[in-house]
Amino acid sequence: MSTRGGTETNNTKKLKERFSELEDCNEIEQKQKIQEMNEMMDEMVENEFDYVFTIKCVFETSKLLPIYMPRILKVALKKEESEEIQKEVEIALLALRNVDEAKMKKERYLNEIKEIIKHHQEHHNLTRLAYLSAWEFFVNRFYRDKSLEEVFVNELHFVREARRELEELSNCVNWKRKKGENDGEKETKEEILLRRWLQALFSCFFTCELWNEEIVELLASTVKQKTGL
């Protein structure tokens, strides 16, 4: 079964089952299931990975949100820097970014997501994918709620952070690889992250009305680099 978000396979079915079982777990059982999910994810290819974290796949009914959201946010708020905890947080943020924005009120997530982003900016405790997912969670709500602009642009400094991430990821990409060369190779993790950051930045450019110096400078430098001026 193929979907716009990827492909359903035995791996994704098993992961969905573990995810759906979280609502009936105590804390110890939940930790065990999350570990099982981590191991399953390590074996997935990109299309499977994308499919698992689409809205239709993970959050099939809105009535489950009050059950899932507090628990997922609690996991996402963990600040330990061990590899195991980083993986748990990564999964939680990947799931959060796909929650239907129309079904979640701002007061249920805003302070927590701000805390996650600010803590990472100071302590760098998140993986690259987890940090991007936290921003994508924000971006997905940007269209409907313009009151987020002040927090998004001036308090959390999205553009500054995006610029730094783009620069670091750009240094990891093989720009000399010609079109058509090694077509059988998958995109690297860095290439996928770079593309997603660019998509988030594109959304910011075209939906944000609260432009500041950071946005203007980044847009100007992007145009300059593109045109070679």
Rank of each mutant, 00 (worst) to 15 (best):
M1D: 03
S2L: 05
T3K: 14
R4P: 00
G5A: 12
G6N: 04
E8L: 07
E8W: 04
T9W: 10
E17S: 08
E21N: 14
E21V: 12
L22C: 05
E23I: 13
E23Q: 12
D24E: 15
E27G: 05
E27M: 12
I28V: 14
I28D: 10
Q32W: 06
I34R: 15
E36K: 11
E36W: 04
M37Y: 02
E39R: 10
M40R: 13
M41S: 09
D42E: 14
D42I: 08
E43A: 12
E43R: 15
E46Q: 14
N47F: 06
N47T: 13
D50G: 05
D50C: 07
Y51A: 01
Y51S: 00
F53M: 00
V58C: 13
E60S: 07
T61A: 05
S62A: 08
L64N: 14
Y68M: 07
P70W: 08
R71N: 09
I72L: 12
L73I: 07
K74R: 12
V75C: 11
A76S: 12
L77A: 11
K78L: 08
E81R: 14
E81Y: 07
E81N: 13
E84Y: 06
I85V: 15
E88P: 00
I91H: 07
I91T: 03
A92I: 10
V99G: 03
A102T: 07
K103G: 00
M104N: 01
R108C: 00
L110V: 07
N111R: 09
K114S: 01
E115T: 00
H120V: 06
H120G: 05
Q121T: 08
H123P: 01
T127C: 03
A130V: 03
A134T: 02
F137G: 02
V139W: 00
V139D: 03
K146M: 08
L148G: 04
E149H: 12
F152L: 07
N154T: 00
N154H: 11
E155A: 00
H157A: 13
H157Q: 15
V159A: 07
V159G: 03
R160K: 15
E161H: 15
R164A: 10
R164W: 06
L166D: 06
E168T: 14
E168V: 14
L169K: 10
K176F: 10
N182P: 00
G184K: 13
T188E: 03
K189I: 12
K189T: 14
E191N: 01
I192Y: 08
L194H: 13
R196K: 14
W197F: 11
Q199V: 05
L201S: 04
L201E: 04
F202D: 01
S203W: 04
F206H: 08
E209H: 15
E209K: 15
W211L: 10
N212K: 02
N212L: 02
E214Y: 09
L218W: 09
L218M: 12
L219Q: 09
Q225E: 10
T227N: 11
L229F: 09
